[in-house]
Design a protein around this nucleic acid. Structure first.
Lengths: 290, 290
DNA sequence: TATTTCGTGCAACAAATGTTTCATGGCCGA
DNA sequence: TCGGCCATGAAACATTTGTTGCACGAAATA
């Protein structure tokens, strides 16, 4: 058995939760969701709000290894103490090797990517969104790692424009779709170094067809940026790691979808609500409990 | 009768402090300096640490205008309550119109997401990566918008561990894969509010099978976080826009892959080089021109 | 079916909580 | 110096806290 991460009392709680009696699970979930109230308000008070017996809290604490509710609460309180939260601001991070080297790698990576996001030019995104708004149809292409970006964009755009958005190559070979590009339509191609032949082919086909070409790439000199009406740049290599970062591309994709939705106005909003209602009716999502 | 507008209990305290008896000043300063303990620990406990009489706390509270220490503490507690994440549910905020409104939206979004990234806890990512490193097999599950994250993680991990990484549900119905989870394997589930039934089912199956469960979610109380050995948190609702942000989840996924690769050492590096060589030989990529 | 185990709510318990009262001691104005 | 006032600490107060013993009922076991 791998030892569980007992860094936080909440993680202990989560781990033990599924193997607990039903009523204790309810109480445990309540504590996990309202851990701030758990540290400040009284047990009976919490019990009243959770609609449970006060004794259940004591039993929950004992079930996960504490001597009682007091001890669990003390642990939660210490875990929440503000002094130990966010030592991020100060860059007083020791770079000693060992188990903390991994943590340092993660921290560096996150900080580097965070620094890269504000450097993304916003203007081209807004302009590209306007093109998307006016497009009769939207094609999206991304290969290899960029496929995740393409699919996210496809998903979000289809939430409010379901009939007009399509991934290249989902319904057959790419070549069939490439011949379907028309003027008045928009084609989004995502790619960075090394560039795949497939993405370049899509970009060229879009350009030749007269469709609006939007390239999300890491460089102005990227092959799919040639002849593009809009080029949205992100920094793929800005962060350490063995693989170029897609965080910037994802951020661009989401911004693009957000602005396009904003341009859609009331019609887009209604479309989104319809889609959400349909998903809810189909019981796709876990219902929120009151 | 009309009480002055109380901006914050702490500022009230500071204002009234100089005109108070000496002992009450000491206690007041102690409360101001240790307001977190003031909200969590008991009055007598604080008195012992401050070297004062318990009654002084009651008198202090009354001197500032509260009915008693309980009421003062309640005010301090509310003032300290962490900002609750707003549910999205299609609350498209009205934004001032104008030509620059779209650009402002993009800028806001990017800045908000950039601010959220450094808040991601790094330690759990490193621990989860260690679990992945030791896992004999790695399953990845994400639905709806989270599928893009799942696919990216799948892609990057397969670059250096091709035979041991698999998306849940790619080779048939999910149910077949759910029964294949084994102890010693790792299952990664990505999800945020609203949670899909499918992702919760995967998480539960993973937990029951004895496999290591890694949840990438927006909350500790997420259903797929129950029983998880590692929970990697990101802020989905931190940025404006009609849809929760996946930037944090992508950043986590990439960090997870990077650290896992790092743990893999020379073997992983060799695997990656082999994969790259094969892709190059297959002419997947556009050759770099001088 | 009979028996046992286990989960659960209720109620009583001792301990701890916040508050109040009271006695003490210092301070300032007659 | 006296007498009133107030700040202050200790102890007693009623209340609330977390805990535990007990009984009932459901589910598992024989």
């Amino acid at each position: 058995m791998a030892e569980p991460a007992k860094s936080s009392p909440l993680s202990e709680l989560r781990i033990a939760l599924p193997s607990l009696p039903m009523r204790l699970q309810e109480v445990g979930r309540f504590v996990a969701a309202n851990d701030y109230d758990a540290t400040t308000r009284s047990m009976r008070d919490l019990a009243a709000e959770a609609g449970a017996d006060p004794a259940a809290f004591t039993r929950l604490a004992k079930a996960i290894g504490y001597s009682g509710w007091d001890e669990l609460r003390a642990a939660l309180t210490e875990a929440r103490r503000p002094s130990q939260t966010s030592p991020f601001s100060g860059r007083a991070r020791s770079r000693r090797p060992g188990p903390n080297a991994d943590v340092a790698l993660v921290t560096d990576k996150l900080e580097a990517e965070a620094a890269g996001l504000p450097r993304i030019p916003a203007q081209p995104i807004a302009e590209a969104a306007r093109s998307l708004h006016e497009a009769k149809r939207i094609w999206i292409a991304g290969y290899r790692s960029c496929r995740s970006v393409a699919e996210l964009l496809n998903y979000e755009l289809r939430l409010f424009r379901p009939e007009q958005v399509q991934l290249v190559g989902v319904s057959g070979p790419d070549d069939l779709d490439l011949g379907a590009f028309r003027p008045g339509e928009a084609v989004i191609v995502i790619g960075f170094l090394p560039y795949t032949h497939a993405s370049v082919r899509v970009a060229q086909a879009a350009h030749h067809s007269g469709a609006t070409l939007i390239a999300i790439a890491d460089s102005l000199s990227a092959p799919m940026a040639e002849g593009a009406d809009h080029v949205l740049l992100f920094e793929a290599a800005s962060s350490p790691g063995f693989f170029p970062s897609l965080t910037g591309a994802i951020a661009i994709a989401q911004s693009l979808a957000a602005v396009t939705f904003s341009l859609g106005g009331a019609a887009a909003k209604k479309r989104l609500e319809t889609t959400e209602a349909r998903l809810t009716a189909a019981s796709i999502y876990v219902s929120e409990k009151g």
